[in-house]
């Protein structure tokens, strides 16, 4: 059987809210090492990779590897019934066609359980190699959210260029143009307020703002976001979820036809 208990149930709620519009459905692959999800959006230009470690949960047991097909809008409906302070336990029998979610209030005086119907989803796993990127930028996740939101109101695509001067986000549209530059800034005392640019070589790539804006739905999960860029390769937008794991979004760059 599979059983996973997380005291901070709000993390699970935020996670599903971050994913549900980007990916309609996907498999929770559970094994003794944790829970993983790899799913693409309907147009296959972006990919979500989620990895939650077994030791990040208060309790984790998985006797047999399983792929649990989840419809994310449906999972979201159920998780909306959990309180923000609730502990959430996920349970499934081997080869089950449903996932049980149990919510316990913090003072243990309210316990509820919901069964989510599982789907059979054929999914192809892509091998994503570990690689060095030309530029890696860590910045406050709220800053990333603000930049992509602001630029989405001006244009459809953004040119992200990383140089030794900083990282620049540029767009243009009917109303005009916009540029936002962040400089390497380690002055703030708190690491989560710093902007850290690790540049191997200058790089500039164009992306659809609609997707970058969608990735920012993960902002409540982490104070810091990491962007990784290399010429002609997908950007990686990564949120570390405390000690539990990480969610990474990959988006293909725009190419000139």
């Amino acid at each position: 059987m599979f059983e996973a208990r997380i005291t901070q149930g709000a993390v699970l709620k935020k996670l599903v809210e971050a994913l549900k519009e980007l990916v309609t459905e996907g498999n929770f692959d559970v094994s003794s090492t944790g829970l993983q999800l790899q799913a693409m959006d309907s147009s296959h230009v972006c990919l979500v990779s989620l990895a939650l470690r077994e030791d990040g949960f208060e309790h984790f047991r998985c006797d047999r590897n399983m792929a649990m097909g989840i419809h994310f809008q449906n999972l979201s409906k159920i998780l909306k019934c959990a309180g923000n302070e609730d502990t959430i336990t996920l349970k499934a029998e081997d080869n089950a066609d449903q996932l049980t979610l149990m919510f316990e209030s913090s003072n243990q005086d309210r316990i509820s359980d919901f069964d989510l119907k599982l789907m059979s989803i054929e999914s192809e796993h892509l091998g994503i190699p570990d690689q060095e990127y030309s530029a890696e930028i860590k910045m406050p996740s709220s800053e990333y959210q603000r930049i992509v939101r602001d630029l989405t109101s001006i244009g459809d695509t953004v040119l992200i260029s990383a140089t030794k001067e900083g990282i620049k986000f540029s767009t243009s549209g009917d109303v005009g143009t916009a540029n936002v530059t962040l400089r390497h800034n380690t002055t703030p005392e708190k690491p989560e307020e710093q902007t850290i640019i690790d540049l191997k070589e200058p790089v500039a790539l164009t992306f659809a703002l609609r997707y970058l804006n969608n990735f920012a739905k993960a902002t409540p999960l982490a104070p810091v976001v990491k962007l990784s860029l290399t010429k002609d390769l997908p950007i990686v937008v990564e949120y570390q979820i405390g000690e539990l794991g990480a969610v990474k979004f990959y988006l293909a760059p725009k190419i000139d036809d």
């Binding site: 230009v45 990919l47 695509t157 760059p253």
Partner: peptide, 14 residues
């Protein structure tokens, strides 16, 4: 016009 490649053109199937 600018297009976008599919994820499967960047990462190989396992």
């Amino acid at each position: 016009a600018a297009g976008q490649k599919s994820m499967t053109s960047f990462f190989t199937k396992k």
